[in-house]
Design a protein around this nucleic acid. Structure first.
Length: 423
RNA sequence: GGAGAGAUGGCUGAGUGGUCGAAAGCACAUCUUUGCUAAAGAUGCGUAGGAGUAAUCCUACCGAGGGUUCGAAUCCCUCUCUCUCCGCCA
């Protein structure tokens, strides 16, 4: 969330910046400031009353020791106590209200984030490689999956529901090979520490990484235990250090985690899409950085590069786009999306979204570090997919399919897959 | 799931109703002195919030939330977590 002091000191700046996401958000700022001043007035009064009570109570204690009659003072303090309860309720209510509103206010886009209102205005930053040409009509991954017995959508629907898939045989093996390839790449070449977290988390973790309270309908919930299935490893991994004060020398932290991801995709337009493009459950290797404020923008470039390396090694054509202010995620200050070319789809598929959140998530989860001067400051958090698996699978089999129907396994992946082709 | 023990500041650990935000030790920071692979001494050293131009002052926090009381780290209730033992189990 945003720093209330920033709203107090520079309300116009905050309104301007937040309006680059959505003009309708600006009035929220004034609403929060009104509650903030009411809250502080009530808080000040409460503290004054508490101070009075403390003083009188001490006098009563001393008086009783000296055998004085303290009943008049006791009556007075009783009255103060009632007043404290009343004003305290006001103060607490305003505090809760203020917090709720702050949690509903998205992050300010970074100055470096291009201004725009829709995805059409996202500038393309760079391309790597070119879309491959074929002297035959390339099949899509659904057909390839059928040919090689790799993907069983009917079985997924049967045992769970639509938008769930069963990988089998070479498909399951390829998925596993990709997971190992990604983790090995990031841990041995890019210096990440591998994490294998729980897949169920407490609600406060989702508040920390901004899925709650606003986007609760997108995550699977187990009400009996009040636990949520993670929509991304970002949630458990970033929250590893919630409510902590890290030592300066611990930063930067680099974590890589493979997990399945569970998303309800409520109201999602693309859910009807055939194939692996949008599933309720998919695998992903996630990269998380925790940095100092001074280094987070550089870290975003590094992180994006690490995700790009995956596609380069697998020989997949891709482009990097930069999300504009109207299209970045709720907590993001700046985001790059990496889109891989899928010949069977004749489309670019988003396989990675790399964002810096500035201190926005850190404030929500109270994640701080002690700087060189011994001051506690909020850390900066970043994350990016490195990469999402289902769509990587799609791009891989569609790109490397051969005229004879076999699928060539890229050189870099052969060690993990254990063969040089499927079929 | 059952039984028991526990949860206090960065760590260890006192504190069973009043002047306790909390002794002491360790760690850490600065300074002083003696000197040399260190020692001794002095001072400082939690977090959050509020008032004030500021110096500074005030409030809250002893796992969390309620309650009793003029007053709670301390008494009562509920919950969470940790440890030990038993049961069950991949």
């Amino acid at each position: 969330m945003l720093d209330i002091r920033l709203l107090r000191e520079s309300p116009e700046l905050v309104k301007q910046r937040i309006a680059t996401r959505d003009a309708a958000l600006a009035p929220l700022v004034d609403q929060i400031l009104a509650i903030d001043s009411a809250r502080r007035a009530a808080e000040t009064e409460r503290q004054q009353l508490q101070s009075d009570r403390n003083r009188l109570s001490k006098e009563i204690g001393i008086g009783r020791k000296n055998g004085e009659d303290t009943s008049a003072k006791e009556t007075e303090v009783r009255g103060i106590g009632t007043r404290i309860d009343e004003i305290g309720q006001e103060a607490d209510a305003a505090d809760t209200q203020q917090r709720d509103l702050l949690l509903a206010l998205p992050n300010l886009p970074h100055d470096a984030c291009p201004i725009g209102s829709t995805a059409e205005e996202n500038p393309e930053v760079r391309r790597w490689g070119t879309a491959p040409a074929y002297d035959f009509e390339p099949k899509d991954h659904i057909a390839l999956g059928q040919t090689h017995g790799m993907l069983d959508f009917e079985a997924g629907a049967k045992i769970t529901g639509s938008a769930f898939v069963v990988y089998r045989g070479p498909g399951a093996r390829l998925e596993r090979a990709l997971i190992n390839f990604l983790l090995d790449l990031h841990t041995t070449q890019h210096g990440y520490t591998e994490i294998s977290p729980p897949l169920l988390v407490k609600p406060e973790c989702l508040v920390g990484t901004t899925q709650l309270p606003k986007f609760g309908d997108q995550v699977y919930h187990c009400p009996e235990d009040d636990l949520y299935l993670i929509p991304t490893a970002e949630v458990p991994v970033t929250n590893l250090h919630r409510e902590e004060i890290l030592k300066n020398e611990q930063l930067p932290i680099h974590y890589a985690a493979y997990t399945p991801c569970f998303r309800r995709e409520a109201g999602s337009a693309g859910l009807g899409t055939r194939g692996l493009i949008r599933m309720h459950q998919f695998d992903k290797v996630e990269l998380v950085h925790i940095t100092t404020p001074e280094t987070s923008m550089d870290a975003l470039e590094t992180l994006t590069g690490h995700a790009e390396k995956v596609l380069q090694l697998l020989g997949l054509h891709y482009r990097v786009i930069e999300l504009c202010t109207g299209d970045i995620g709720f907590g993001s200050a700046k985001t790059y999306d990496i889109e891989v070319w899928a010949p069977g789809q004749k489309a670019y598929l988003e396989v990675s979204s790399c964002s810096t959140f500035g201190d926005y998530q850190a404030r929500r989860m109270n994640l701080r570090f002690k700087d060189a001067d011994g001051k506690n400051r909020f850390a900066h958090t970043l994350n990016g997919s490195g990469t999402a698996l289902a769509r990587l699978f799609v791009a891989l089999v569609e790109t490397h399919q051969q005229a004879d129907g076999t699928i060539l396994i890229p050189e870099a992946l052969r060690r993990h897959y254990g063969a040089d082709r499927i079929g």
